[in-house]
Design a protein around this nucleic acid. Structure first.
Lengths: 220, 220
DNA sequence: CTGATGAATTGATATTTATCAATCAGGAAA
DNA sequence: TTTCCTGATTGATAAATATCAATTCATCAG
């Protein structure tokens, strides 16, 4: 991996455009990166990647085009590993292969969970379970600050910012209180009854592949 | 893999229940299997697996609970490989590991495509692109038979059967004609303009992981 | 402190999608 | 052939969600 190198990116830069050849595996060292999908003029947030995680692992492995674009949310430091080096390593280091297998399998399951939420829950339920899940990541705190802008959160949850705003308002009769970006869970039981958290959707998985970050790590 | 064995299942049997421990990797030899997700009384189809494909690979690798249930659609013959044997193989056979890495990466990308369709396209667009994609799998035929029941297709596409039925009717003014389970594309250009097929959503991927089957193969 | 900028909220409305109920159609079994 | 069952369709309606427009709010540069 001698030819790997680190690089800094300014905020708001679309560093990867979906469809481009996956020449490098990316590893976030500092900052955060939004993974987004575009189609016919529309776009939506698929995940936010925070240190230390890889992204677009699957594309690098298959030497295939990126399925998502990547845009820095803040100043971000990233290591770039040539995909060909990555693939060459599989035949040199068995333990490395096993690690990659595990990482891929974990990521895979993470996307499946995501798809389950999208198909089985309506937007109110998605919001409620997201907020409860974040509370858990914050050590079960009843109050915490949203790790991402609401606009981005709305896109991640598959809804419009307006709809998220109204949904948060509606949830005030179900044990939630918002104060700007601050979340206050006033009645955890009530909110939980509505969100119906589920191990097979919200985790945790045996190995934690969500490193306290705002949105699940993903690997194209 | 000496302790693997084949088994036959009757139609309509829920052979795997989500949440169960993933003791076996499953390989479909004959028949077809529906992968479905359940939550709070609701359920939806995530994929249909046809021969010859594995499913629940990721769960087997991580020794984690299945994220989806599996139900036979017809009489089905399946090989069961103990997950522990599978994991042991990684350290014995490098080429096997590389194959699994590629299989996982392909499956991963397949689920991401799925999530993109769900988030970026509305139901009419999902239906149109599904039908065009199937036409492609049928060698570009203008007419073919739906490979699955409409009820199941609706669930897979994230809509109700009623909505699918109405959507198919609406599409008759956009180059489509239905006759029972038969699809007839009367104006491919018009339908294509509506569906806006996209390589990064509808494939094909470099390696074909959809073996002419009805719905994309998936591996929990 | 002030203006400018983008996010967030709110209201009004339209569109999409689901739900419920009632047929209708087609295939399997008697 | 007839019966029965399940899936498919259709209609009427309700609920969920998006869109568009107008403020309000927060933050940051000057």
């Amino acid at each position: 991996m001698a030819s790997s190198y680190a690089q800094n990116f300014p905020p708001g830069l679309e560093m990867i455009r979906q469809g481009d050849p996956a020449d490098f595996l990316h590893i976030v060292l500092e900052g955060s990166v939004e993974l987004l999908a575009q189609w016919g003029g529309r776009e939506c947030t698929m995940a936010v990647v925070r240190p230390v995680s890889t992204f677009i692992l699957a594309a690098s492995i298959r030497d295939a085009p990126y399925l998502m674009s990547a845009r820095t949310l803040e100043r971000t430091r990233i290591i770039l590993v040539p995909s060909s080096d990555l693939r060459a390593m599989f035949r040199r280091d068995t333990e490395f292969s096993v690690s990659v297998i595990n990482e891929l399998a974990a990521g895979y399951r993470s996307v499946v969970r995501n798809a389950k939420t999208l198909k089985l829950r309506n937007s109110r339920e998605r919001v409620a379970s997201y907020l409860l899940h974040q509370s858990l990541l914050a050590g079960g705190a009843a109050s915490y600050i949203l790790p991402v802008e609401k606009r981005l959160l709305a896109s991640y949850l598959g809804m419009t910012p307006e709809n998220l705003s109204r949904t948060l308002k509606v949830l005030e009769s179900d044990g939630l209180k918002m104060d700007g970006a601050r979340v206050i869970i006033t009645d955890r039981e009530k909110l939980t009854a509505l969100a119906q958290p589920d191990k097979l959707i919200d985790g945790p998985d045996s190995a934690g592949n969500e490193s306290g970050a705002g949105l699940p790590t993903s690997h194209i």
